[in-house]
Design a protein around this nucleic acid. Sequence first.
DNA 1: ACATGTTACTATAACGTTATAGTAAATAAA
DNA 2: TTTATTTACTATAACGTTATAGTAACATGT
Lengths: 323, 323
Amino acid sequence: MKKVTLKDIANKLNVTVGTVSHVLNGIDDISVETKMKVLKTAEKMGYVSNNSAVSLRLGKTNTIAVIVPDISNPHIAYQIKLIEDKLRNLNYSVIILNTNEDDSLEYKAITTALSKQVDGVLLCPCQQSSNGVEFLKKIEMPYALIGRYFSQIDTDYICADDVKGGYLAGKYLIEKGCKNPLYVGSYKYIEVGNNRFEGLKKAYEEAGITIDEEKYIPISPVSENINELTEDIVKKYNFDSIVAFSDIIAFEIMPVINKVKKVPVVGFDAISSHLYLPFCYASVGMVNKGWADKATEVLLEKINGEKRVFHELIDVKMFEFNI
Amino acid sequence: MKKVTLKDIANKLNVTVGTVSHVLNGIDDISVETKMKVLKTAEKMGYVSNNSAVSLRLGKTNTIAVIVPDISNPHIAYQIKLIEDKLRNLNYSVIILNTNEDDSLEYKAITTALSKQVDGVLLCPCQQSSNGVEFLKKIEMPYALIGRYFSQIDTDYICADDVKGGYLAGKYLIEKGCKNPLYVGSYKYIEVGNNRFEGLKKAYEEAGITIDEEKYIPISPVSENINELTEDIVKKYNFDSIVAFSDIIAFEIMPVINKVKKVPVVGFDAISSHLYLPFCYASVGMVNKGWADKATEVLLEKINGEKRVFHELIDVKMFEFNI
DNA sequence: ACATGTTACTATAACGTTATAGTAAATAAA
DNA sequence: TTTATTTACTATAACGTTATAGTAACATGT
């Protein structure tokens, strides 16, 4: 793979690399005649700038890292697609780092991003610890959390309005006449999951029904044996409806539960608002396609030196997909 | 964002950057005493190597680009996840570039990848033209095509065995008693789609039924108005079953078709083999989780100078998801 | 004792780029 | 005519790293 450099162009035209660089960067101190020659030769030789050199020189890469627990989750994949689309138009590239909900991989991902000199990081944290965020903070890397946040750490985040989301899920079920919902959630260190439960409780509170803590069943977002887990749940608990932490979890548990009794299920993320699925279900999702857009904006502001701390909640609504 | 460099460490310890570099790279010509000092100081100061500098010096970035039409397609997202997982363990990073099935964006993506000095490219081409592949070929970038290929271009690819896939779909429908399948496919420039149709025809041929070309309905993989399109199809054609180019298309058209008549539908990709969906459907998918693994291997061989041309077909089978 | 080898470094150049300062020649202003 | 300004460049250094060659100090072999 032979690469054309400024030097190659300069040699061919008997000018210096500086001249070529100036032309290619539009610094206007080169004669039209030379400019044309350079442009034509660069084109003809297939010159493409070497970003390693540029970034070494300039100290920026025009690349941001998106670090997520699971890129194969359609909700995440879609947000990443939106981020990529938006950033491409702003001449940024996206490097994706997957953590598989593993805290140590998250830390490693941040180190990788740092080593690759990315200009900023969008992180959806695993939340087993706060090491990752603390690290980003310490090294003063521009970053923002997406989709999840730490209530105990004052830092930038762009998330769904999950309390409202849980509340809407509650309202929905109440309207359906359900009096006894079960919340099949994430591990409790994932705070947005707790918020969803809070909202759910609040809605029921307003309807005069108290939902106690044991109705919060935490399961791993990456459980292997979800079928058995669900069967246990069905045996162990009394319920007339389900609220699931995510559509993914909802989809996984629905068939198992339906085998025993058919109850309303509400999920989160409204995957079907972009990935059409041929069955009926209800899900709480974000308006305006979610946090991708806002997150990108916030990160770019951070990269440009903004010191203000952003706490952005994206509004949510109920999506009912009826086929 | 202040960054620690080799120089910072060297100055603090009154050695040269060369010494520090040698220690950190395990070149064994430094005394144990100095080695320890360097290691400890690097750790304490939070040193992380600057990949821009390393890659400028070494001419490699340990990064590969994955260029795909749509990262939000769960099938693609899953393959990317597998690629990322595998490469991470080999100390490579992945940069994702989305083309939205747009040929000019594909070309731009390749330029970006080149500029970022990636060591290799995995490309799922849009196939509106072969400009992208030709370009990769011309600049002698190590690359391989994934999921799609050009029958007219002799180049590396790793794809599903789509002829067999179509054949299996046909066999499946024949067994169900269907005599008149309709193939709702991609645009015809996407050759794997044609292969699927070929396979389908072959299966029916063997059963004594000829499927003529007009039963191949090409629609865009990114159609906006798929509902209307489907309604038209239902009106216009006679059929007792459907084979769809992908699960995504199958999912989109199923509800519209089912409104009129309930017929068996077979898709491709078997999304539910990783993303569980709570409804019944049949889909042809790849064994061994698909092409991700093989594609990564092939690309790494290419990067290491292998000149052999790889044509890899991943075996497929019918997946029936019954809830 | 002398050559030879080993140890533990240092010094230098190079990767490709861009910012900055410098300069010679041409042009304009005084 | 002399001085200032503009034009169109060139020359140089720097970004952070690593490979290579070099070297001084000491140890070993004969």
